[in-house]
C-alpha cells in the first residue's frame, strides 16, 4: 500500500488530523514526533499506556522478594546478633523497600521496551517513511491507504496545516 506523509510544525494539528482520519476509517496511521507531547499520546490510542502494569507487578514482586528472602535466610541459619530477633522486621523493611524500587524500575524499563516495541527494526534500518527531519523539529503523520483514497487523505492532511505532503511507494 502507498503511504502519505504529512509534515507539520506543531503537535496540535497532527493530533486533530489523526483523529479525523481514524473517524473516517483509516487505521494504519503512524506519528513521528521530535519530543513528547501529551496531545499525541491519545491521538492514535486513547487507552493509558500499559507500562503502569509492569511497574506495579515489578514493585510487588520486589517487596515480596525482599521480605521473603531476608526472613527465610534469617531462619535458615538462625544466628542471634546484637540481641535482635531473627526476623527483625524494621531492618528488613529497608531491604524490602530497596528491592521494591529495584524490581519496579527494571520492570518499568522492560515495560518500555515491550510496550514501545523496542528494539525496533533491523539494525540501522528505519521505517520507510522515517526521516531525520523528525529528529529535528518537525512532526510526521503517516497514512497508509489504498491508491484510490490518496486524494482524500492528501486533502485532509493539508486541511490540518500540513506544510508538505509526500507519497512513499511501498
Amino acid at each position: 500500500m502507498p503511504a502519505l506523509v504529512g509534515i507539520y510544525d506543531a503537535p496540535g494539528p497532527v493530533a486533530e488530523c489523526a483523529r479525523r482520519l481514524r473517524g473516517r476509517g483509516f487505521t494504519r496511521l503512524e506519528i513521528y514526533a521530535p519530543a513528547a507531547f501529551p496531545e499525541l499520546d491519545t491521538a492514535l490510542d486513547e487507552k493509558p499506556s500499559k507500562v503502569r502494569i509492569w511497574t506495579l507487578i515489578g514493585g510487588l514482586l520486589g517487596v515480596t522478594t525482599g521480605y521473603a528472602m531476608t526472613i527465610w535466610m534469617s531462619y535458615d541459619w538462625p544466628v542471634t546478633i546484637g540481641g535482635k530477633p531473627f526476623a527483625s522486621i524494621p531492618t528488613y523493611t529497608i531491604i524490602g523497600f530497596e528491592l521494591t524500587i529495584l524490581f519496579g524500575g527494571l520492570a518499568t524499563l522492560l515495560g518500555l521496551l515491550v510496550v514501545g516495541r523496542l528494539p525496533y527494526g533491523r539494525f540501522g534500518k528505519n521505517d520507510r517513511a522515517y526521516s531525520a527531519r523528525f529528529s529535528a523539529e518537525e512532526f510526521g503523520l503517516v497514512v497508509e491507504c489504498r491508491e484510490r483514497d490518496v486524494q482524500e487523505v492528501d486533502a485532509l492532511l493539508r486541511d490540518h496545516q500540513a506544510k508538505e505532503v509526500s507519497l512513499v511507494e511501498p
Binding site: 519530543a35 499520546d41 529497608i94 524500575g105 518499568t108 514501545g116 523496542l118
Partner: peptide
C-alpha cells in the same frame, strides 16, 4: 534501539519516565 519517536514510543516513554520518577523520589531519600 531503533528509536524513531513514534507516538507509541513517546507514550510509553513518558509513562516510564513518570513511573521511574515516582520510584526514584523515595529511592533518593532512602
Amino acid at each position: 534501539l531503533g528509536w524513531q519517536g513514534t507516538a507509541r514510543q513517546w507514550k510509553s516513554h513518558s509513562r516510564a519516565v513518570l513511573h521511574l520518577s515516582g520510584l526514584a523520589t523515595p529511592l533518593v531519600l532512602s
